[in-house]
Nucleic acid binder design. Structure first.
Lengths: 99, 99
DNA sequence: CCAAGCCATAGCATTGATGCTATAACCGCC
DNA sequence: GGCGGTTATAGCATCAATGCTATGGCTTGG
C-alpha cells in the first residue's frame, strides 16, 4: 500500500516538473507511431530489414523505433511514411477540452 | 533560359537522391508548423519571449523555429502545443493518391 | 537621447537520434 | 548440425537541434 502511494506521489511530482510531462507525451506519441509502423510493416508482410531498406534506414534503427526506444525526427518519420505508402501528418489540433 | 533549365535539372537530380526528398518534406512540414506557431502566438498577442517562457524554451529557439531554421523534435512540438493550448497530432495518414 | 521591447543571428556546449557494425538469441528448414 | 532469416541490443561516431549567452538592428514612448 504505502509503497504504491509513494510511487504515485513521486510520479506526480516528477510530472509536475517543467518539460517532463511534455517529454513523456512526446515519447508516448513516438511509441504509438512505432506500434503503427510495426502494424503497417507486418501488414505488408515485411521484415524490419525490408522496411529499413525501403526507408533508407538500418534494421537496428527500425527495431529501436518500433520498441519505443527513440523519439524519431520528422525526417525519419517522413521516410517511414513514404516507405509505407502513407502521408506524414503533423498538426496542432484544437484541444477538445470538455472537462 | 539555359541557366534555368539547368537549375531545374540539378534540382530534380538532387531530389532523386535517397533521403533528400524526405528531408525536404520534413523541412517543409517544420516550416509550416513554424508558421502556424507564429500565427497562434500572434493571435494570443504574445511575443516570442512570452511564448518561450510558456513553453520552457529560449527566445532564440522560437525565432529559429518560426523562421524555418530548424526541424523541431517532437518534444519541442509538444511543449509548444501545450503552451498554445493545442494538441500535437502526429499520424501516418492514408495517401489520397488520385493521380 | 535613452530605455524598453521585439526579432534575428552568431558561436559554442550539450544532448539525443541515427547510422554503422557486430553480436546474440531464437526459429524453421534441410 | 548448419544455414538463413528475424529481432533485439551494445558500443561508438556523427549530426542536427536545443539551450545559453551575447549582440545587433529596429521601433516606440517618455
Amino acid at each position: 500500500m504505502s509503497d504504491r502511494v509513494d510511487w504515485n506521489d513521486l510520479r506526480e511530482r516528477r510530472m509536475a516538473e517543467p518539460g517532463v510531462a511534455e517529454a513523456y507525451e512526446a515519447a508516448r506519441i513516438a511509441f504509438e507511431l512505432g506500434q503503427e509502423v510495426r502494424h503497417l510493416r507486418e501488414r505488408n508482410g515485411w521484415s524490419q530489414s525490408q522496411l529499413a531498406g525501403a526507408a533508407g534506414m538500418t534494421q537496428s534503427a527500425i527495431a529501436r523505433f518500433e520498441a519505443g526506444g527513440t523519439v524519431p525526427t520528422l525526417a525519419v518519420l517522413e521516410r517511414l511514411a513514404r516507405a509505407l505508402d502513407r502521408k506524414l501528418d503533423v498538426r496542432f489540433a484544437p484541444r477538445a477540452d470538455a472537462a
